[in-house]
Every structure is written in structure tokens, then in C-alpha cells.
Design a protein around this nucleic acid. Structure first.
Length: 158
DNA sequence: GCCAACGTTGGC
DNA sequence: GCCAACGTTGGC
């Protein structure tokens, strides 16, 4: 019997890498590079193939969830940490002892309309989401199955 | 652009 | 190990 599917929220700045950018990639799939926070990294290392992701646009005019993605490859070293020319270079991460990791995600479904942060805050069932907690800034965080499905249903009933 | 809330760094 | 200084995130 396979393990239960898990659910996540991943943030990306749309001017850097948007949901449409993911869709436009070969096979609508890309690696999730650049996570440089230990807690977010640890969550990412728990991700399993088939887990579903809420794709969140952050640090933009209207932050919110724009659609869903699926984990297609589990944790492996983030090679951008080894590249001195990368914005994500970290000399303390070595190929023989990597500090940072990534997963691959595949674009899955665009919502009919964005579920904005404001709208999520107004939704009682989403009140306990980590995203709502003051001061939390993780770019990768778990959500419950119920939260995932609530956000998706809001996004698909626009 | 502002700034609250973190996380990280490094001197001691 | 403490903690001040600094850097980053991300909503507003």
C-alpha cells in the first residue's frame, strides 16, 4: 500500500518564476531551485512523488494561489548552490556534501481565478493555515488535505 | 518604499 | 553560548 498523499504550498515571485513559466517548461516540469532556508528545505525533503502543491505568487501586487502542481521527482542536490555565477550560490554547499536540495514539480491545473491571500484570510476553514501565521515566511510549507481542497474549490468556482 | 518578523553571522 | 548587527522575506 502506498503512503498517503501529502499537500504543500510553494511560493514563487511571479517576476522571477511564475506559474505560467512552469507551464511553458518542457513537459511543464522544472526543478525547484534556490530554497536556502533549513526549515523549508526539510519540508521539501519530505515531499514524495505524487504529492500535490498549491502554487502561490508572492511579493507581487496581488499575492495568492494561482493553481496546482505535482511533485514528479523527490529530493536531490540543488546544483545551483555549486555555481559561483548563480544567484543561489552557497560556497558552503559542496557536491560531496550538499547542503541544499530541490524537487521537480509539474504544472497540473490552473484555477479559473486566483485565490487571493485576502480571500483566504476571509475563509474560516483556512484560518489555521501556516500561511496565515504572523511572521512566517517559509517558501515551502505543508497544508492539510482539507486546506488544499478548500483552496482548490475556491479557485475552480470563480 | 516601509517595516515587522524572522534567520544568520560573527565577535566575544 | 550569547546577542547585536545585518540581511531577507513579503505584505501593505
Amino acid at each position: 500500500m502506498s503512503r498517503a498523499k501529502q499537500f504543500w504550498l510553494m511560493k514563487s515571485e511571479p517576476t522571477v518564476f511564475s506559474f505560467d513559466d512552469l507551464k511553458a517548461r518542457h513537459l511543464s516540469t522544472d526543478h525547484w531551485e534556490g530554497v536556502r532556508n533549513y526549515q523549508a528545505r526539510n519540508y521539501m525533503r519530505q515531499m514524495k512523488k505524487g504529492d500535490l502543491v498549491l502554487f502561490y505568487h508572492s511579493n507581487c501586487e496581488t499575492p495568492g494561489v494561482v493553481g496546482t502542481a505535482e511533485v514528479t521527482r523527490e529530493t536531490y542536490p540543488d546544483h545551483t548552490a555549486f555555481d559561483p555565477l548563480s544567484n543561489y550560490y552557497d560556497p558552503k554547499s559542496k557536491p560531496d556534501n550538499p547542503r541544499w536540495f530541490m524537487v521537480d514539480v509539474k504544472w497540473k491545473e490552473a484555477f479559473l481565478g486566483m485565490v487571493t491571500l485576502t480571500e483566504m484570510r476571509r475563509t474560516p476553514e483556512l484560518g489555521r493555515m501556516k500561511l496565515m501565521q504572523k511572521g512566517q515566511r517559509l517558501s515551502v510549507m505543508p497544508v492539510t488535505k482539507e486546506e488544499f481542497e478548500k483552496v482548490r474549490s475556491l479557485g475552480m468556482t470563480k
